[in-house]
Design a protein around this nucleic acid. Structure first.
Lengths: 221, 221
DNA sequence: GCTTTAATTAATCAAGTGACTAATTAATAA
DNA sequence: TTATTAATTAGTCACTTGATTAATTAAAGC
């Protein structure tokens, strides 16, 4: 996290537009992403967001109007990217014309799972998982906005590969898949803690495990 | 939710111990369970809890000392029951001596899933799922307290049935299973919304689907 | 060069927040 | 009966919250 307007010694900060050009809005989104991920919507204060950048609390309102809007922008920034990535991968698979269930599961999960490597991306994954637990009015609207299209597209694609499975069952399985990968990649599972004998990185192979688990789960009669 | 001390007309409430015996503490736990489930720890105020019962906010402090403690008691009340139920079912299976993966998955999930029928139990399921997203200091301590024993016991039981699978992998699969069922039964999935053609109850068969999904996922190489 | 617009600080506001206290009344113990 | 304990209300306290405003300074437009 880069501090904006780093205070040089003996150079107190004064009101007014600073010299040069600044882009505080990205920094605010990053800070808010990390804090919302860690503490949730209600548990995060705008002052915390500002403090994380060394900025004035009023700057948050200046760039994002209010807390609700800030949260929306934090979520949609990466959410739309994930959704677009999913749609792209699905199109690629369909063009190949010989994909199987495993390909579909991987295409669905990887756009989100790939964020895990970067700390800021990991914060978003936590935020994403947490969003499902936020009050419905905020949560459902955002999830609908970001995920509706790609979720239906994947459900259709799964249904095509599982012609004997009722459509409702396909959606239920997809729901289970989403719950599994969100939890596993949210960083809130107690996996590391449970694995006391942990010699290696417990996350190693997590993507592979998730795809294997999800593929078998989707396929099972 | 029964209102405690329902105000009879023309009979204003006065300070002092009321006649008869009261048991406000169960009512407070129920109200808090519903509100924590809906709004999370930070998003719920003690005044809301009190108001839901028509009680004085000070009563919450009287019975539960503070907010943190109230949350702990709400969670452990049912959490310990689930954990005990799991241990019992595991013992029953082991005594039978011929259980398979599916039995194990069902024994793990059903104690929680069975709460789904009752609205208050459903609130707890939502709270339980949400707990995983609360700040670590609160979440991890409670989950450790309530679930450590049974989780390790089931991991051991799964490992016995999956001798070729590395122990770490067993824990990872168990984590995926937990994520899947928690999400599916938290009532926060958008399943009903996605299933526009929903003629029947979309939850119908959810337990069966979850067990099928989880069993296949655990078994898959 | 002058005017308008953009970006910042400091200060403040009303509305909550969790927690606590004193007063009060009924039940229980002695 | 009397003293003590349990359960309740009303009120308050210091603090935090999201939001807004006026003043201030630099950049951009003309």
């Amino acid at each position: 996290m880069l501090k904006a307007n780093k205070k040089l010694p003996n150079e107190a900060r004064r009101p007014g537009r600073p010299e040069g050009q600044t882009n505080l809005s990205e920094g605010i989104l990053d800070a808010a992403e990390a804090l919302f991920a860690e503490q949730g919507y209600a548990g995060t204060t705008l002052r915390q967001v500002a403090e994380k950048l060394g900025a004035n609390p009023a700057m948050v309102a200046y760039y994002f109007k209010n807390k609700d809007n800030l949260f929306r922008e934090v979520f949609t920034r990466r959410g739309h990217a994930i959704s677009a990535d999913r749609m792209e991968r699905l199109a690629t698979l369909k063009a190949r014309r010989n994909h199987d269930l495993r390909d579909l599961v991987a295409a669905f999960i990887e756009p989100a799972a790939s964020l895990y490597h970067d700390p800021q991306g990991r914060a978003f994954l936590r935020l994403h998982a947490r969003l499902h637990m936020e009050p419905a009015e905020l949560s459902f609207e955002l999830r609908r906005l970001v995920h509706n299209e790609s979720t239906h597209a994947y459900a259709k694609a799964f249904a095509d590969l599982l012609p004997e499975m009722p459509v409702r069952e396909v959606y239920q399985r997809l729901t289970l898949l989403i719950g599994a990968y969100l939890y596993a990649f949210s960083g809130t599972s107690r996996l590391d803690e449970l694995l006391i004998e942990g010699d290696d990185d417990p996350i190693k192979g997590l993507l592979e495990s998730t795809i294997a688990f999800g593929t078998a789960g989707m396929r099972s009669p």
